[in-house]
């Protein structure tokens, strides 16, 4: 089997096979944590790091793991990686760790991590597996940040609230208040808002894809006609 091109890995991870918008995997943390940008960004980074590391390790050991026990081995690898990340967050980002709570260890159960380990890392080289994990994670983070920004802007009227929890005290002024004395739309912050927001984002992505496809078809037709007359 020939090696997959890096450009294709990057494009797949970020857009055409985006974990949250196309594969629709890992919805539990996506919907529960994306109530504002900072939470979404931090969990997205944690997931991206987990994906990159776990994909790398799984790819390194892929020749020695037999088919029958591959799933427990993958879960063990992922659990070790997530435990390390959780302990690191507990030390360096303690306030954020308390806010995210149970969702950091729950990265172990995040479907996207084990899906990429099984579908890609166990069948490809180390560098490609690492790239795939990283960009799938970045795609997931992109979804988390976008949904978080949407929900925070509509629900609270701010962006980057509580940024100091992640970036240190210097970032306290980073909060952008979009509307002064915003009344607040509670539904956007509650779970129903997450589901509806995600649905709308998937619809927008499909719309963009359809438009790009139509434009590509038009270009093909035009060049075909031009070539016909040549």
């Amino acid at each position: 089997m020939s090696d997959i091109a890096y450009s294709r890995i990057i494009r797949d991870g970020l857009w055409t096979n985006n974990p949250a918008f196309v594969q629709i995997l890992g919805l539990c943390p996506l919907l529960a944590v994306s109530s504002n940008v900072v939470n979404g960004l931090s969990l997205g980074l944690a997931t991206a790091l987990t994906l990159a590391l776990s994909n790398t390790i799984v790819s390194m050991v892929r020749h020695w793991v037999s088919d029958e026990i591959r799933i427990p081995v993958f879960v063990l690898v992922i659990a070790c990686v997530v435990t390390a990340i959780e302990l690191a967050m507990n030390v360096y980002l303690h306030e954020l760790y308390k806010i995210l709570g149970i969702f950091i260890p729950l990265i172990v159960t995040n479907c996207i991590v084990i899906a990429r380990a099984e579908a890609f890392a166990s069948r490809n080289t180390v560098t490609r597996a690492c790239a795939d994990g990283l960009f799938m994670g970045l795609g997931s983070m992109f979804a988390l940040v976008l949904l978080g920004a949407l929900r925070e802007a509509i629900g609270q009227g701010t962006l980057f609230a509580n940024a100091h929890l992640m970036f240190g005290d210097a970032a306290k002024g980073m909060t952008i208040t979009l509307v002064e004395h915003y009344h607040g739309f509670l539904l956007a912050i509650l779970p129903p808002g997450a589901f509806i927001g995600l649905g709308l984002l998937i619809a927008i992505k499909n719309m963009i894809d359809a438009r790009l496809a139509r434009r590509a078809m038009a270009t093909v037709l035009v060049t075909h006609e031009a070539g016909w007359h040549a």
């Binding site: 009344h183 739309f185 509670l186 539904l187 509650l190």
Partner: peptide, 8 residues
């Protein structure tokens, strides 16, 4: 219900 939950 949306209004009741969002703007009590």
């Amino acid at each position: 219900v949306v209004l009741l939950i969002s703007f009590p």
